[in-house]
Amino acid sequence: MTKIVRSMAAERSLRPECEQVRLLVERFLFLKRRWQGLAEDGTKFEFDLESRLKNGCVIHRTDQADYVIVQREERVFQVATPTAEQAALVGWKIGNLHFPVQIVEGFLRVTVDPMVETLLKRENWPYEEISVTFQPLRLPPEAVVPPPVEGS
């Protein structure tokens, strides 16, 4: 039987892993409101979402298990950015190609693409290709911090 999901039930499951049923999804599905998915035990879900889901959140609960959304890993280039200046430079040049990036301590990640690879090789920046749960930066409206008031 199909379950309809309109919002997440909890941000994280507190149950042990053996009592969690995963629903593996591609990253782009977190941006969509209406879609369908199949959990690992074959339970079918239809999503008509009022709010955003998060990787690892619980979408449905039964007495036996929590159904948890899990983002699939994807191939990315991980570029070493040892200094803030280097990170800004790499971020600016990749952003100039309109690719979203993820910032992690000492590294910057971007999806695998020939354009990006050409840039990385041309600039001679050290990088490696890895599989990770890619979570690029997004700027939600609430993240925009107003400038400090002068004199305060």
Partner: peptide, 8 residues
């Protein structure tokens, strides 16, 4: 790249 449209 293909633009990722955020429906939220």
């Amino acid at each position: 790249p293909v633009e990722e449209v955020d429906e939220f």
